[in-house]
Amino acid sequence: MAKHYAMVIQLKKCLGCQACTVACKFENKVPDGQYRTKSPAIGPSGTYPNVKVFFEKQACQMCQDAPCVKVCPTTASHYNKDGLVLIDSHKCVGCKYCMTACPYDARFINKNTGTADKCTFCYDTRLTKGEKPACVTTCVGGALLFGDANDPQSEVARYMATHRTEVRKAQFGTRPSVHYDYEGVK
């Protein structure tokens, strides 16, 4: 069966420590001031002393119905053989149409290349070597699970089978491969 790489983010375990943010920067040589992933604080909500806050790791959601792929005029944004949304920077002209289409603000114009850029799940540098993405391996809180959702034995598949997870902005029907477990934080 074809692979379906997926990520599960357990928000109650995310400490907002930004280790993933920095790991990604060096793994993928992301220019300064730009980020493929970030973990902003959501909140605080409530009133003293009953306050809540959590961190939501944000990056490309690896949609299976990706608006960015649909609108890309040059087919630079595409699905690769493993179903990941990737960008062929040779084809990209930097029109930013994909950025307007992405409901997750996951994309940016790389200031070194002038082309659209975003999370790739570290496809070239790590996945193809059998390693997990840099953010996953450096996660201090252990909030990130990663694997092949089509393999029922994988960590992600087992987690999703036993926990209630959500995708962000489900109303757009983008079918993301990044799943969030909001248990204990909202």
Binding site: C17, Q18, A19, T21, V22, A23, K25, F26, E27, A134, T137, T138, C139, V140
Partner: peptide, 25 residues
């Protein structure tokens, strides 16, 4: 130096390193 990871040989660290550690380069 292109990247710094936690040392995976240490089970207490499990290959994990914080944002500051990642920033070494």
């Amino acid at each position: 130096v292109v990247k710094i990871d936690g040392n995976p040989n240490d089970s207490a660290f499990g290959g994990v390193i914080c944002a500051r550690g990642n920033s070494g380069p």
